[in-house]
Write a protein that binds this DNA or RNA. Structure first.
Length: 293
DNA sequence: GTCCCGCAAC
DNA sequence: GTTGCGGGAC
């Protein structure tokens, strides 16, 4: 038996109960997901970026398509960003695709193609924050750095904070630290997330009692919708460029003013999705060609 | 309406 | 600490 008890907080017995319950549940209903069948850090990073704010069911469809198109970090790094964005369409949060692409380039150009194998090294990659760095380090390299994502948060709030509101992640992280299985952190984090999924399905989402819980604003009518539309319109025209004057007709269904469409195209250019030549936009890095008619 | 294996810019 | 970021399933 591992000694996990710290000088404060729940007793060793409570920790043991939690660990036993999570493992028991895991033995009953472990999710066999494609990214759980590999130790390849590239394949695991792709899955983690896709899973940020995106449900498993939708990643399941896109994940094999993406890996077929870009099987290795070198393949992704040498692809056209337009090809990456095209495969990404339907997953949402396009900036993740751009960050993943830039991370692949960084790994090839700054690390000689060798994946960083530490949390600190992973953390420096674009689009990789604390949670993703720790997740990749656990799932690809077997490290036991604690992290919190939505299912892990649900698991701990449900078990350790019944009936309490406004729970900060800072109160959860020591509990994650105290319960990590030092012999198999990879499988332990899988078990935790599976348990969190079960808790949400069974009791409702306890993360609504998190201090950090927020509600996403509606997508229909949002600026996000227009951004996605402008990017899709330019992607559809690739390799040709799109005159700014054509955006209103291409995005007629959104009913936005021409000035707003132009503002958003400029913003996408600043962020690196598009390149602006005169008054026309093309996908960044795509070949010079005629203006789309 | 609610949710989703967060990150980065501010 | 707050805000913006896509899209679809339920």
């Amino acid at each position: 038996m591992n000694e996990r008890r710290s000088d404060f907080g729940p007793s060793q017995a409570i920790f043991d109960d939690f660990v036993a319950e999570v493992w028991d549940h895991h033995r009953e209903s472990r999710r066999d997901l494609p990214w759980r069948c590999t130790f390849d850090p590239y394949e695991i990073l792709v899955s983690e970026i896709m899973l940020q704010q995106t449900q498993v069911a939708r990643v399941l469809d896109k994940y094999p398509l993406f890996l077929s198109a870009f099987p290795t970090v070198a393949a992704l790094a040498s692809a056209d960003v337009g090809a990456v964005l095209a495969v990404w369409q339907g997953l949402g949060y396009n900036r993740r695709a751009l960050a993943l692409y830039r991370a692949a380039k960084a790994i090839v150009e700054e690390h000689g193609g060798t994946f960083p194998d530490t949390v600190e090294g992973l953390r420096k990659l674009p689009g990789v924050g604390e949670a993703t760095a720790a997740a990749v380090s656990a799932f690809a390299f077997g490290r036991g750095q604690p992290f919190i994502e939505t299912n892990i948060r649900a698991a701990y709030i449900h078990f350790f904070f019944p009936g309490q509101d406004g729970i900060p992640d800072a109160a959860i992280l020591p509990l994650v630290q105290a319960t990590i299985d030092p012999d198999d952190p990879r499988e332990w984090f899988y078990a935790l997330m599976d348990y969190g999924v079960w808790v949400k399905r069974t009791y409702g989402n306890p993360s609504r009692r998190s201090r950090h819980h927020t509600v996403q604003s509606r997508f229909a009518g949002s600026r996000r919708e227009v951004r996605a539309g402008v990017l899709q319109a330019v992607l559809a025209a690739t390799p040709a460029a799109v005159e700014v004057s054509r955006l209103p007709e291409l995005l007629d269904a959104l009913g936005r003013a021409p000035e707003e469409l132009a503002d958003i195209a400029d913003e996408l250019a600043r962020e690196g999705f598009l390149e602006k030549t005169g008054t026309a936009y093309r996908i960044a890095g795509s070949a010079q060609d005629d203006i789309s008619e």
